[in-house]
Each structure stands twice: as C-alpha cells, then as structure tokens.
Write a protein that binds this DNA or RNA. Sequence first.
DNA 1: GTAGGGTTAG
Length: 736
Amino acid sequence: MATSCTPAINLPRLSHHQKPVSATVNIDRSLLLQLDQCSDFSQLKQIHARMLRIGLFDDPYSASKLIQAAALSHFSSIEYAQKVFDRIPHPNLYSWNALIRSYASSQEPINALLIFIKMLCESDELPNKFTYPFLIKASALLSALPVGKGLHGMVLKSEFGSDLFVLNSLIHFYAECGCFDMAYRVFLSMQKRDVVSWNSMIMGFAQGGYTEESLDLFRRMEGENVKPNDVTMIGVLSACAKKLDLELGRSMHLYIRRNGIKETLILNNAILDMYTKCGSREDAKRLFDEMEEKDIISWTTIIVGYTRAGDFNAARSVFRTMPYQDIAAWNALISAYVQNGNPKEALATFNELQLRKKAKPDAVTLVCALSACAQLGAMDLGGWIHVYIKKHGIKLNCHLTTALIDMYSKGGALEKALEVFHSVESRDVFVWSAMIAGYAMHGCGRDAIDLFLKMQEAKVRPNSVTFTNLLSACSHSGLVDSGRDFFNQMEPVFGVVPGIKHYACLVDILGRAGNLEEAVDVIENMPISPGASVWGALLGACKLHGRVDIAERACSNLLELEPQNDGAYVLLSNIYAKSGRWDKVSELRKLMRNYGLKKEPGCSSIEVNGNVYEFLVGDNAHPLSKNIYLKLDEIASRLKSIGYVPMKSQLLQLVEEEDVQEQALNLHSEKLAIAFGLISTSPSQPIRIVKNLRVCDDCHAVAKLISKLYNREILLRDCYRFHHFKEGSCSCMDYW
DNA sequence: GTAGGGTTAG
C-alpha cells in the first residue's frame, strides 16, 4: 500500500512509533534530567542536538521538556523555542502552553494569541485551565477588550468557569482594560477567592482611581480571614498615594511593620512612592536611607520626591550619587524641570544626557524635551528632535504625536503640526485636542470646528480639554454663536460637565464680542462659584470695551480670590487710563505698592541658530546690545517718516515704572527681540518671538508696520495666542 | 509536569 503520499493518515501512526523511543528509559531520563538542570544556552543546544540524534525529539513528552527549557528558563530565547517547536511533529498541549506562556510575557504578546489560533486550527488540542490564564494575560497586556471578552465566553462554556486561576486572570484583565465594573462582577461571582483575587481587585480599583473602593476591599478582606501579603500592601499604598492621604499611608507603613509583612524591594519602593506623592520628603528620605537594597526605581522615586518638594539641588545631588543613571532617572529630572516651568534647564539636562551618551533617550525623554521646546517656542531644536525621532525609527505613540503637534503649533508652524497630525494612524483624544488647540491659537476657528466634527466622525469622545480648546478657538475667532452652542451641548450631548475653564471661555467669547451683559448673566447663573479665571475674562473684556462700571466689580471679585494678582491691577489701571481717570490710576499704583506687588516684567524670547535669547524690558545684557539699540533707533525714525505716532497711552501698562523714560515704549521686550531678529537672522526667515504677557497695542501696531517696511514675517506668540504679522497686517485681525 | 496579582518617568 502506497501510504507515503497520504501523510494525513500516516501521522497518527507516528505516535505509535514513538513508544519504543520512550522505552529507552535510561538515556531518556538522564537526558531529561540534564535538561532540567541545564543552566545556559550552549548546554541547551548540546542537549537539543543529542535529542535529535537519538530520536527523542519525536516523543511529545520529551519535546515538551525541551520547549519548556527553551521558552521559559532564565536564558530562554523565544526565537529558538519557536524553531524547536516548529520541528515537533505533534506538539502536545504542554508544549503549546509553554510556547503561549512564553509569548504572553514577551515583547509581542499578540503572538500568544496567534499561536493559540494556530493550535485550534492545526491540532486536536483544546485549551485547558493552564492555557486560559496565559491567553488572558496576553489580552490584558494588549488591552484587547474584545479578545478577552471572547476568552471569557469560552471559559464560561468550558469546564474551567470556576477555576480560581482563570478567574483571577480575568479580574486583572478587566481592570487593565478599565472595565472595573466587569472586574468586580467577576470578583463577586467567585465561589472561592484567594489572596490573589483580593490583590487583583484592590490593585485594579487603586489604579482606576477608585481609592475608596480599594481601601474598603482591603478592610473587608481582613474580615473574611484572608491574610494580606506584600502584594496586597502595594495596592493599598498605591490607593493611599492616589488619595494623597499621608496619615493613612503612614498607618499602612506601620501595619506592614506590625504584621510582619515581608518588606520586599518592590514594597519598599511603593512605600517610598506613597511618601513622595503625599509630600513627605522626610518620611521618604528616612525610608530611603534605611533601605538595604535599592534599585533604579528607588533612586528615581527619591529624585522625583525632591523635585516635587521643589528642591532641585537635592534631586541633582542624588542623581549624581546614584550608581547608574538610567533613562528613567534622566526623565525624572527633565520632566520635573518642564513641569516646573523651567524649560531651559530641561533642555540643558537633555543636552547633558546626549553628551554623556550613557543612556539613550526614549519616547518619554523626547516628549519632555518637545514640551520644553514648545514652552520656549524653540522650533529649531524641536524640529531637530523630530528628525532624531525619524532617524532612530522611534514610532510615534499618541504622547509623542501630541507633543510634536503642540511644539509645532506653539512654534508657529501650524502646517507642520498638521503634517504630523495627518501622518499618524492612531489619534487619541489628546492628539485631536492638541490639533484643535493649534488651530485655536492661530485664530483658525472655523478649522478648529471642522476638526472637532471630524473627531466625532472618527468616534473619538471629546473630553474636558477638547472643549476648552474648542471654546478658545471660538473666542479667538469671534465665533460667538458657535461658542455658545458648543457650550450648551457639552453636558447634554457629550456628557462633559462644564468646569471653571469652560465658563471662563464662554465669558471671554461673549465679553470680547461686546455682549458684556450676557457675560455677566452667565456668571450670575453659574452652578459653581466663579473662579479667578472667570472674573479675569470679564475684566479683559471690560478693557477691550472700556466698561469701567463692570470692570470695578470684576476686579474686586478677582482680587478677593487672588489678592496677589498683579495683572488685575494693571488691567483695571489701563481701563481707568483709557477713560482719563488719572486719579484712580495713581490710587491703584499706591495700592500695589502697599501690597508689595510688582507688575510681572515683560519678557520676550527669540531662537536664533538653536539658541534661545531672552529680553526683558529695557534689557541691555545682550552682547549685541549696542547694535540692537541702533536698529531700534533706525526703526523709530523710519516709522516716524511714514507718520507713525507711538501710542503713549500704552505706557500706562508700565505701572511699576515711576520714572518712565521718553523711550519707554521703544524698550518693550518684544521690540528688542524684533530688532535683534532683524539683525541676526536671514531675510528669508520669519522672526519668531515668544512673549510671557499679552502684547501691547503699540507693539502690535509697530510689528505690523515693520513686517511691511522690512518685508519680514514676524510670528509673535503672546501668553494668549499667535500674531502672524505679514505685509502690514496681523492674522488676529486686531481682535485679541 | 505548567499558572494568576506588584513599584518609577509623560
């Protein structure tokens, strides 16, 4: 009989042939024993070769042992395991499980699921109680909710519907996917729960921000006589840290000591983290000094603790003394600088990182660096980082995409921001929101609204930030009706409850357009108490429309909330000045002096050849100061020759300057920066300037004229929006 | 003969 051409029939017979092989007991056992004891990769390869020679490989049991060693030992290589696996004629379930398990904890957990599908298609094996936890773990790592749900369904139809391990992995899976109700439902449905069930649920709740539920569960667990262990306490501490409850955290620390819970490195790190998050630098330091074993996480955590306490010197010195600065430690420093509004120091540290070449910047580093560039408007450097990302093949995740869009938008290159936006496949709510913000700050209100509509087509749910950006887009473009409509839709249509920021935007939209009565009406009917930003928006509108009556009320409310708000005094003083009430102006000045308040000095920065230069009012610290002032004189005389009259009333913005000089207007920081830009950049380049305050009327008018007289584009970002000066006019259409 | 839960940086 010619059986050779019908392997499908031959295959089952092979297993019969294997019997004699496994009957060679002596060689068999010793080799398998060696496999168990094998401690490195080369030994493994030798055993593999011997197994091939004696045909042991055809025995599924022996083969499974080899797979286990190849896939799961400490020297394992998943590629090798896969190759071995592919040569096994009939892998048994144990082998499938070993391979699936190995992939489930690999870099590409998706392969665990693919191998599972292969198993279902190509073998007669069915998943058992060991298979499911691996598959569910892979789904959790992938946050693949539909996959996990499908597996859950299979589990329920199988005989493992009440298996403790399977259900525990489901709790973890649902929590990981953010389905806390499902996780809890599985938890409640269990007939028997062990410490892992409780731990998974406690950690799930803690990470989902349900701190009360988490802590409640911890108390109930004791009532049900399940003894908490070190992992339990990590979850509980995470909840304390999220709650910022130092006292509770301390009591948990005590609980750990009293109950003899094993103080593992990870647990100590969690306690350390709790202390730093709850703001107790002292407790953190004490524990840190006590810890016998420390790892990179301990060091990073204490650095973060010091930066949160504002002690950058201490953070730096810990950083210097730690045994090895990995990228997370660098990131901790850099991100702390970024978040504390010190982008220059952030970039200096980023620079240092690259010079030392000890650690490689990762996506987080680049997000931080880009955010620093965005704050500074340092587009050259930001663009360089973009090139770096491309060159190193770093994939754009949503964080990076958002950071790039933000950097380009704030640097004035809206087109580049759009390029990035369109180039990526996945866009989460932050990516969309950042792009809407980009349109908003450039005064493209219509485009922002269009994008918002496209976002809905893409089925991405807007959040509170999205609406802040959308409303500010309406404000910058004077889209009063759209703004009002969107605001009214927020809660009923999108389920986003308007917060202070949204009310401030609405007041700004209405007030800016001159509907001051309606704006006041909105404030009076707010369900939450109007914060400083709301009164500030109203005050700003009063300045624009010269409404002294409402301004006084807005200002006094604002100062009640923020007595130190120098901007409020300045604005009100401007309003008085505009209506000629000099008595009130000097009264305000006196008041400010009595309170020891000073107007925040104007500061403009400009990036030239990758360096960021800052100018303060009347600054002459720059090496080219002399040339800058010569240029300013030249500008002044050219402006005069075409009949420009400086807006002297704007001088009143400089409240703190008692002895205002004749040239004071000319010394505004943005003018210095523009003059410097004119002499130090090539005529084809636009001049990009970032100012910390709002641009004044005179500087705005002068910039328009310079853009025409010198045929130069000027991109000026003030603390509020972009002004794109070109051929004598500004993109804001003088509406700002 | 195999398993499940954990801390840091945006």
